[in-house]
Every structure is written in structure tokens, then in C-alpha cells.
Design a protein around this nucleic acid. Sequence first.
DNA 1: CGTTACCATCGAAGCGATTCGATCAACGTC
DNA 2: GACGTTGATCGAATCGCTTCGATGGTAACG
Lengths: 339, 339
Amino acid sequence: MATIGDVARAAGVSVSTVSYVLSGKRTISGPTRDRVQRAIADLGYRPHAGARALASSRSNVIALMVPFRPGINVQIIMQFVGGVVTTAREHDHDVLVLTQDDAQGIDRVAASSTADALIVMDIESDDARLPALRALALPSILIGVPDDTTGLSCVDLDFAGAGRLAVRELARHGHQRLVLVGASQDRLDHRANYAVRMRQGVLEQAAATGVAADVVPAEPTFSGGAAALDAVLAEHPGTTGLVVHNEAALGGLLARAAERGLQVPDDLSVVAVSPAEMAAGLPVPVSLIEVPGERIGRIAVEMVMARLSGEELAETRLVSPAFTDHGSVAAPAPDPVRP
Amino acid sequence: MATIGDVARAAGVSVSTVSYVLSGKRTISGPTRDRVQRAIADLGYRPHAGARALASSRSNVIALMVPFRPGINVQIIMQFVGGVVTTAREHDHDVLVLTQDDAQGIDRVAASSTADALIVMDIESDDARLPALRALALPSILIGVPDDTTGLSCVDLDFAGAGRLAVRELARHGHQRLVLVGASQDRLDHRANYAVRMRQGVLEQAAATGVAADVVPAEPTFSGGAAALDAVLAEHPGTTGLVVHNEAALGGLLARAAERGLQVPDDLSVVAVSPAEMAAGLPVPVSLIEVPGERIGRIAVEMVMARLSGEELAETRLVSPAFTDHGSVAAPAPDPVRP
DNA sequence: CGTTACCATCGAAGCGATTCGATCAACGTC
DNA sequence: GACGTTGATCGAATCGCTTCGATGGTAACG
């Protein structure tokens, strides 16, 4: 491989001149710049990443901690990752993958100057990694919002807003009795801040709008969805509107509805909160509030770049929810559904 | 951050001694080694990745090219990635993510010594990246098998073997008329080598066993699966056994079967070729031949490591298929199914 | 006891960039 | 016309590590 010395020789200039042409940190005359650039192209020169990192103490790498535990929503993870990688490349950075259970991963990557910044996905309310992140010298961005955000930068969908929006959509079509089919009890209890925020949004808006709203947990499986629908109809008769925040259960829920002879949206209106792609695989189209994975990944990288260029902000950014109509919400039937 | 010099001073030895303790490339006496190791621990020293890469011309990074195009089977992608990352860490390597459409990604990563090796996923029969890969100075491993493998190293499931195994399983239960519900016509035509190999395996074994086998393509969607089942029953009446190699269509296919009053396995036996997790989300349990994503990722990394340590092999490794019974295969009903 | 070998360790030369003065020529300016 | 500016370029130090050759001390050997 050609080195910067080869380029300098070929262009008849010094090594530092080549460096300045590359970085633009000092003015170089037009003719010289051209000669250097031609030499670079001729030799197919690329700066050695390690050498550059050593000299500049910048690796141009962002570390991304991805959850690989089973049961996670893979669809949305991939969207995040795609958004992060694409945006990082636009800023001339690469992305290094860390796994959740690589406990020392954060320290390792930071202490060895392997990465310039860290993006951590799947943050829990009281995440075990928070102390490590707070102590970190590198800028870090969390995807998800923990309970205590002091000193941290976070991005996520505004789940409370999403809950409110879903309720508003259903309420304005005249629904009076709603149920949120949400995360499993387990996740609600322990970890998932987004589930809590979602529930808050739904209940809050229901109270404000004067409609009834209850919550039914669902296991994130096909049969979990079916069971959840049964539970809704058994425990909350008269329900006409559903907010489903559980992609994995959605299919089973809809299938069970069909089995029980319930038409969507005639007998039952449904709003899903889910990645957009997910809904494509369903038997019936479902109106949804999209979890914009790619967009959030993109924002995370942009926050990283801002931090790297010296802006000292530690802020939480919540992406506004948007409702996409696919026809699964309509006015409730005059004669409400009974179990 | 502490440097190797700090460690050397703290331990009262020279820099090179610390380096040799770390690498083990020369013998260091027990006492000295201990002192150095204590100093390392005390200072929390980690070698600077860039400096190490510069001096040793080894980055300890593997680049992984991941497809992010829509419509891809995300589930299995994540399994691969998980397997790759985990195994790479076991060998003290990190993983850098490249995207498919980052065309110059391969060259960039190679020319800048950012990575030591490359793993490329989702290889097509006549993949556009093959020339670049053949010309590469870095070791590269393909996940998937192109038509011409000369000079390349590949790993994949033995799809032909999987096809044969599926047919044997069905045949030994007495099925006489089988259909392979496979990839969409589009993928079959253009790209997906695995689809071609699968079909070969099925047809070959059917011929050998003396059973009838046909192929019906399916779009990789819920409704594509439903349509495929309709097509099977319309075009190939008397079919009692199905091999489904199309995870995304499997749910729709099973749902349509239920709608038409066909019981699995009483009226219809089904073998799926799919990642294991996928099958968990289905309304009925389905016997399957697993696509062992994680395992393949692991093997890919092990091949990388072998290449990096000097073994000059360029080989293709096909993972043997295994059948897992979940009860969706049984003897056909005496009175065969009619459309 | 003089050689030979080997073991443990050190010193110094890179690896390929970045970056901070320093230099030198051309240019106004008074 | 001497002098401070400014613009373009160079040289050398530096980043933190690996690795090769050299060195001194010990043990083995005849």
C-alpha cells in the first residue's frame, strides 16, 4: 500500500503538505493541491487508519452496542443499525458492533481508543450500564430513556405522545372503551421504560378525553396475542378500540379476532405502534404509529457528531409520533361488541 | 490513559519487556511477568488500538458486510451477526459493519488497513462483488455460495442436502406427492443460489425415492404464502406433503390451510426450512430444518482466523442439515386432499 | 576453567500519519 | 527601500506500540 510519503514524492512536495491537502487545515495553493490530488488518485492512496488514529487521537469509529438476546424485536434493531451505519458513513465514520453481554466492552473500546463515541441500544429504566456510561470519557448516546437522565444524551420515539395520539385517533372516531394491549408484564415490571411511558400516554389522554381505557399485557408471541384478545373481550366487554404496542403479538391477536368473527375495523378498530415493515406481513392492513428505527439511528449519529465537534450538550430528544392510516380505524358499530 | 511507557516505569522494566509480556512472543521470567501484570492492572492499562495496528500491521478487526435492503430476512441476518460478533470476540477481534451499497467499502477498509479480513453476507450466484473479493489482499469469507467459487472461501447451509432430507422425511411417512414452496420467482431467476440448490436437492431426492415433487414459488409475504397454498392445491391436487423454504410466507400458508379446513399434519404434512426462532411465532408448531445462522457466522469467523494465521486454504464448507420434529409430519390421510 | 548456549532483558529503529513552529518569497506600506 | 504581513511550504517532533539485534548473566559441557 502506498503511504503518504509515496504520495509526497510523486507530487514533489513534503509529507506535511499532503497531509494539509487532505485535511484542509492549512491553505495550499491551487496548483500544488491539484498535483497532490492527482498523485493520490494515481497511487490509490488511503491513509492508514491506525496511523491516523495514533497521530490525531481520533479513530473515526463509532461503537454501537446491539442487543442480541432472544425475544428482542429484530426488525427494529436492524432498522436502527441501518440508520446508524448509513449516517455514520455520511460523516466518514465506521461502526463497530459490541454486544450487550460483553460487559467490559464499553471500557475496552474507550480505553484502547478503538472508538470515538458510543451508541447504546435497548436502554432499560434502571440500566446496569448507566454508571459505566456516566463515567465514560467518550461521548455516548442512549437509544431509549432511562429513569434518571442526568448527564446523559438520549433519543427515542415519544412513546407517551404516541399513546396520546393513538387514543385521540380512536376517540375522534367515537370510541368510548379502549384497551392498550402492551408489553408483557415482565417487561413492564422490570425494564422497559418505553412500555411505561406508552401506558402513561394512553391513560392520560383517555382521562383527558373522557373515554375509558384499560391495559392488558401480552406475551410477545403469536399465541400471546390471541390470548390477549380473549382477555380483552372477557375482562373489558364493550371494548371497541385497541391500541396494540406489541408487534409480535399483533398477528395472533388479529387471527383470533378473525376466528371470533370480529371484523376490523367494523367490529374492532386497531391502532398498532410498530415498525412500519412489520405491518406489511399481517393478514389485514393496520393503521399504525410507526417506530422510526432508522430515523432514530440517524439522529443518534448526528448527536454523536455534534458532541465530537465540541458541542457540550447532553440532551434527550424524543421523536414525534405520526399516525399512518391504513383503514383499521372506523366508527364503532352502533351495537357494541360482546364477548 | 496510561501508555505502555507508564506501565514499564511502574514495573521497573523497559517498554519492550512489557510488550513481550503482553504478546508472549519472548520468554519473560515469572517474577518480572507478575510485576508487569500488576502494573497493568493497577493502571488499568489497555494498548492503544491505533498504535498497535500501526506497529504490527494488524488491526484485530473483521469487517462484516451486512445487507440492509428491505425484504431481507432480518431474523437470520441477526443470527449471523450475533454468531460473528461473539466468535470474533473470543478471538480478541472486533467487528466493523459495512453496508452492501457502500460500494467502495471493501476497498476502503482494505486499503486503509482498517480491517484484517472481510466476511460478506448474502452472496448471489453471480455476485457483483466477486471480482473485488478475488482481487482483495485481505482474506475474505463469503456467506453463501456463488456459481464460481475458484479462489474463494464460502460457508453456508447445505441446502441441497436440506432439500433431500426434507423429502426423505416426508417420503418415509408415506407421502407420494410433494410440493416445494420456495423462493419467489424473482429470486430464483436472478440471484439466490440457495434457492436453486434447495430445488435441486428436493427434485433429486424425489426422483431417487420415487415420489412426485413439484415446485411452487411464493412471494415472501403473508399473503404470498396464502396464495401459494391455493396454487398448490389448484395445480397439484393430491399433494399431501409440503416443504416450505420461505419463512415469510409460512404464516400465511398455514393460516390459509386452516381457513380451508386442512389440519396439519392430518391433512397436510409440512417441513419448513427456516431459522429456528421464526417457527416460534407460528400458530401451529412446524417441524423444521433449521438454518443455523449463528453457527454459520461462527464458522465464518473461524475460517477467517485460520486464514489469518497462515493456513492458505480456500474452501467451501457446507453445514449439514438437521431435522427437528415438532409434529407437523405424519402419515397422509387415506383419502388424499382435494382442492 | 574456557566455550558455547541460552535465557531474560534492554535500546532503538521503525510503523504512517498529524501538527507545530520555522522559513522564504512576494507584497504592500510609509 | 527597510519593514512588517501574509501565504505557501517544509522539517522535525510526536503519537504508542512492535520487533530486531545486542548485551550481560548463568548454566551446561568437555
